[in-house]
Design a protein around this nucleic acid. Structure first.
Lengths: 206, 206
DNA sequence: CACATTTATTGACATACATCACAAATTTTT
DNA sequence: AAAAATTTGTGATGTATGTCAATAAATGTG
């Protein structure tokens, strides 16, 4: 019994070294092409980051897209010496500075590891090559681009139509993991409010 | 000479009845597949709207995507009896309520014609069929989804990092056609400010 | 062209949220 | 475990922008 479990694990790891990534994709693309599974195993690479390390710096071209196996990251811009959070990401998210990656131009955002991280990544060139060669890859890319665009739409809606308290409540309802896992000062800047305002909103709730 | 021009126009119109649409797509996809050109001519249909008419109502599923041949439209939501503009669109834009269209679920946005309009449209089902059949269509869809996502990113950046005056200036610099062609009350709600505030900002400039 | 309706402007006042300053609590480092 | 550093909480005060109200300008309509 023990042997069987052990054997299974070895087999599993060797055959699908990027199982988290493949399983995640399968949530959105059932009947995933075997060829794509192979390409993923072959072309995605692992990168580790330690807490506080930057994945992307302002002014640089985002050459890769990453899938988070483990860890949390924060994306932010500096504007008038103020740090404004654009997004957080969690395990199972794909991340990149979108416009910088897609257009291969310098971006104004920074991405930093909030904890130690393990990421799988693939380059823009390689991904475009796969997209050009294979309809299935092109579809995969499209599906995740749609997912990203819908997230943006949701965030725009939140920022444009809600006041500070409504935004905080919305976050608690729809993205509780952000409130649970991210320091308040970053949550505040993500909501476009100050730490003090967030602190007062939280005080009112108790 | 007159005859030749006339003849050319007839030929042109008959052969490419959706020339504006095809030309627009070619700006982003050079060497457009002839098959796609044919599909466009065959599967896109024309729809006319008169000023004040709604293209999409809140609560309804966006079943089509439209390309604007002529006219202006405004997309908005009603929240606490207040009308908040999400976007405007102009000739050569593709429009739909994105998440409602992609997920085929009811949306909370409304789209209304600000002027008489002529639109080309195609249904979700037909477009998905084309995307499934043809790699070239899938790529086309992906390219325009990327374009949309980048627009959203820009707007998010504007809303999150700028104050009222900066937003207005940004609009004047990057999207002057909005300021030139759209009534101020809608521009204000698009910027997330009141008409009064916009009016004061404009007064300061002169 | 005159009248009606909609849109833009301007002033007085209200308010949500920011800023500054400092204390308390929590987390990290040694 | 103590010390240092970081994050959070709270009060006093400031300010950008909202709200309400009334007028002016622009646009639409018979």
């Amino acid at each position: 019994m023990v042997f069987r479990i052990y054997f299974y694990q070895i087999f599993y790891l060797e055959y699908h070294p990027m199982q988290e990534l493949i399983s995640h994709i399968e949530k959105f693309i059932p009947n995933l092409d075997d060829r794509i599974r192979q390409d993923i195993t072959q072309f995605f690479k692992l990168r580790k980051l330690t807490k506080g390390e930057h994945l992307v710096h302002e002014g640089q071209i985002s050459k890769n897209v990453y899938f988070i196996k483990k860890g949390l990251l924060r994306n932010y811009i500096i504007k008038n010496d103020k740090d404004e959070t654009i997004w957080f990401c969690f395990p199972e998210d794909f991340i990149t500075v979108f416009s910088s990656f897609q257009l291969q131009i310098p971006g104004r955002e920074n991405t930093i590891a909030l904890t130690d991280c393990e990421l799988y990544w693939i380059s823009f060139e390689k991904l475009e090559e796969l997209n050009a060669q294979s309809h299935a890859w092109e579809r995969l890319s499209r599906v995740f681009t749609i997912k990203f665009a819908i997230q943006q739409e949701t965030r725009l809606f939140m920022l444009q139509t809600m006041n500070a308290e409504e935004k905080y409540d919305y976050l608690g309802e729809h993205f509780p993991h952000i409130i649970q896992q991210i320091p308040n000062k970053y949550v505040a800047s993500y909501l476009g409010i100050t730490r003090e305002t967030l602190s007062r909103i939280r005080a009112r709730k108790t």
